[in-house]
Design a protein around this nucleic acid. Structure first.
Length: 271
DNA sequence: AAATCTCCCTGTAGGC
DNA sequence: TGCCTACAGGGAGATT
């Protein structure tokens, strides 16, 4: 499932191929995604030029001369650059075809993602306006997270996965960062000391920065590639390892459900 | 305001 | 082998 590092890697992968290019047309084969695909995606695209791409949280933003395309990959979505006219497979829902004979193809088997259009100031879009800071930005720091957590009874794991607190920390990296920081996922956010919160902030930044670096190597070639990220299986400390031995102390890792999310931790290394 | 629940969807895994 | 069911998961929106 695409987490922030995969989203950023995807953005970096498509950007050089579409930046400055002109859209010839777009094709929507399946409009029923998380929300209906905006009609402008077909109606307004011909003749628009792509000015560049950005990322906010797990949203990819494609800036065109007429407005922004907002893409979320959900949990099974991907974007690839392919030769225009490449045959469409089952879950290839949207093609944005460029005049230079390449196209951006959106694929999403589970359709949890979205492809929307916004002509207004992008930061004020309802999906983006109230998002928390980027995990790698300077404004995501100990003081911020500590202050925001005071009085909160929600588990620390749910807290850091809340996109209004900080964006882009999905289930995998929440599990990993809490293990690295030595904090049990279920402790109340409001009870975590400032010193431990400082460790957590550092660990979140570290795991996400590392994943972006690794993701960049596995998703290097988007033209003709399969676009499938696969890096994250190798260096995981706890995620997906419930009942296996802790890599730090050898004890058996515990797995519980927290808000329907798989939560793995070591009860000796995490307090 | 904060916490909790529901729902969107389909590939995969496990049981029989 | 094949059918059936449970389940995973991002995250917005509704509900409590």
């Amino acid at each position: 499932m695409p987490e922030l590092p995969e989203v950023e890697t995807s953005r970096r992968g498509i950007d050089p191929h579409i930046r400055g290019q002109t859209i010839a047309r777009s094709v929507v084969r399946q409009s029923q995604l998380r929300w209906p695909v905006s009609p402008q995606i077909t109606a307004l695209m011909p003749g628009q030029t792509v000015l560049g791409t950005q990322r906010r949280g797990k949203y990819i933003l494609i800036e065109t001369t007429a407005g922004h395309i907002i893409i979320h990959l959900g949990m099974s979505g991907s974007v690839r650059i392919l030769p225009a006219g490449a045959p469409a497979a089952k879950h290839d829902h949207i093609d944005i075809v460029f005049t230079h004979e390449l196209m951006l193809r959106y694929t999403d088997p589970r359709r949890f993602g979205c492809v929307l259009w916004s002509e207004d100031a992008i930061a004020e879009h309802p999906l983006l306006a109230r998002l928390g800071p980027e995990p790698l930005a300077e404004d995501f720091d100990t003081s911020y997270l500590f202050r925001l957590s005071r009085g909160r009874k929600t588990p620390i794991k749910s807290f850091i996965m809340d996109s209004h607190v900080v964006v882009g920390v999905g289930n995998i990296y929440a599990n990993e960062a809490l293990f690295m920081a030595g904090i049990r996922p279920l402790v109340e956010a409001g009870s975590v000391s400032r010193a431990r919160m400082a460790r957590l902030v550092a660990c979140i930044k570290q795991v996400i920065a590392h994943a972006i670096t690794v993701g960049g190597t596995t998703l290097r070639d988007f033209v003709g590639g399969d676009g499938k990220p696969g890096y994250f299986q190798q260096s995981l400390l706890v995620y997906g390892r419930g009942t296996e031995p802790c890599k730090q102390c050898g004890g058996i890792l515990q797995e519980v459900r927290l808000s329907a999310r798989s939560t793995v931790f070591c009860k000796r290394c995490q307090r």
